[in-house]
C-alpha cells in the first residue's frame, strides 16, 4: 500500500467524520424542546448554523481528498501508532486507577507509559523520577493548596 493513497483515505475519513458530527449536532438539536422567548432566536439556531458550517467544511475536505488536488491532506510523516497506543493506554489506566488506587500510583503508571512511548528504556531512573514528581505534586497540592486529590491505597500514609 503506498503512502499517498492511504493519506487521501485519511482525508476522506476526516471529512466524512466531520459530516457525521455535523449530522449528530443537527439531529440532537431537532430533539430540543424550546420554551417561548422574546428573542425569537432560540437555542437551536446557532447549533444549526454550526452544523451546516461543519458539514460544508467536512464535505469539501472529503471531496478534495477523493478527487485529489492542491488542498488535500497529504504528506504525513510515518506515524508510530504503537507509541500513541502506549500513551493512550496510560491515560485510560490513569483515569480508571485515580479514584480506587489513588493519585500517586495512577500518576506513576501514566508517567511510565509516557516515558516508554518516548523511547526510554531506563525503567529504574524513570520510576524514581516519576515517583518523586508525583509524590511532590500530591504533597504540594494537598497540603499547600488543600486540593482534594484521591489518596487511594496510600490513605493515611501521605
Amino acid at each position: 500500500m503506498n503512502t499517498k493513497q492511504s493519506i487521501a483515505g485519511a482525508g476522506l475519513a476526516i471529512g466524512l467524520g466531520l459530516v457525521a458530527i455535523a449530522s449528530v449536532i443537527g439531529f440532537e438539536t431537532m430533539q430540543m424542546r424550546v420554551p417561548p422567548s422574546y428573542a425569537r432566536v432560540g437555542p437551536q439556531i446557532f447549533p444549526y448554523i454550526i452544523a451546516i458550517g461543519m458539514a460544508l467544511a467536512g464535505g469539501y475536505i472529503a471531496w478534495k481528498s477523493y478527487r485529489g488536488g492542491d488542498d488535500v491532506i497529504d504528506d504525513v510523516e510515518p506515524t508510530d501508532w504503537k507509541n500513541v497506543g502506549i500513551i493512550a493506554l496510560g491515560l485510560i489506566a490513569h483515569m480508571n486507577l485515580l479514584r480506587p488506587a489513588g493519585f500517586v500510583p495512577a500518576g506513576l503508571v501514566l508517567f511510565m507509559s509516557v516515558a516508554i512511548a518516548f523511547g526510554s528504556r531506563r525503567y529504574g531512573r524513570d520510576a524514581i523520577v516519576g515517583l518523586f514528581l508525583v509524590m511532590f505534586a500530591y504533597i504540594g497540592f494537598t497540603y499547600g493548596l488543600g486540593l482534594q486529590l484521591p489518596p487511594g491505597i496510600l490513605k493515611g500514609l501521605l
Binding site: L91, M95, F103, G107, L110, F111, A115, V129
Partner: peptide
Amino acid sequence: PLLYGGILIFSTLGVYSLSNSTFDLVLLF
C-alpha cells in the same frame, strides 16, 4: 521521556481538579 511524562502528570492533575471528576479526564483524552 521525563519532560512529557511530567507535562501529562500536571495536565491531568489540573483537569481533574477543575471539578474532581474523572469524567473530565475522559473528555481530556
